[in-house]
Simulated scan of single mutants.
Amino acid sequence: MKKSASKPASQNKEGLTGEKHDIRPGQSLELLKELHILTRDGRLNQDSRRKLKQVYHLYQFIEPLLNTLQEDHTDICLVDHGAGKSYLGFILYDLFFKAGQTTSKAHIYGIETRDELVQKSAELAQRLDFPGMSFLNLSVADSITSRELPEQVDMVTALHACDTATDDAIQFALKKKARFMVLVPCCQAEVAAELRKNKGDAVRHNPLSEMWRHPIHTREFGSQITNVLRCLQLEAHGYQVRVTELVGWEHSMKNELIIAEYKGLPAKRPAERLAEVLKTTGLESLQRRFFVTP
Rank of each mutant, 00 (worst) to 15 (best):
V184Y: 04
S134T: 15
Q11V: 14
K33M: 06
D75S: 14
S252V: 06
M155N: 08
G26C: 06
D94I: 04
V277Y: 09
K53W: 10
D201Y: 01
E261K: 10
G26K: 01
T281Y: 04
L66F: 05
G89W: 12
A9M: 05
I258M: 12
L117Q: 05
E284F: 07
K197Y: 15
G282P: 09
A173V: 10
L38D: 08
A5T: 14
L232K: 08
E284K: 09
Y56G: 08
V228N: 07
S285V: 15
K279W: 03
C231V: 07
L183H: 04
K268M: 14
D115P: 04
H205Q: 09
A271I: 02
K3G: 08
E284P: 02
Y59R: 14
I225W: 06
R147A: 14
K13M: 05
V292T: 00
E245Y: 05
T68M: 10
T113D: 05
R219W: 11
A236W: 00
V191P: 04
Q233H: 00
M211I: 07
L286M: 12
Q188T: 00
R49F: 03
D72G: 06
E256A: 02
Q54F: 11
K51R: 09
Y262H: 15
M1S: 07
D94E: 01
E194V: 14
L286R: 03
F172Q: 01
D75P: 03
K2E: 09
A236H: 01
E112R: 09
V79L: 12
L208V: 08
S139W: 02
V241A: 01
L65K: 02
N255L: 07
E148K: 10
I111M: 12
F135R: 13
M181T: 08
L136Q: 13
E245H: 14
L234W: 06
G110D: 07
L265D: 12
S121E: 01
N198F: 05
S134N: 12
E272N: 09
V243M: 06
R242Q: 10
S139K: 04
Q233S: 03
L38K: 09
R289S: 00
L136I: 11
P131F: 13
S134G: 04
V241C: 05
S4I: 13
R40F: 08
H107T: 09
W212C: 00
A9D: 02
L136V: 12
H214P: 01
L52G: 06
C77L: 15
H205V: 08
K7F: 08
T74A: 13
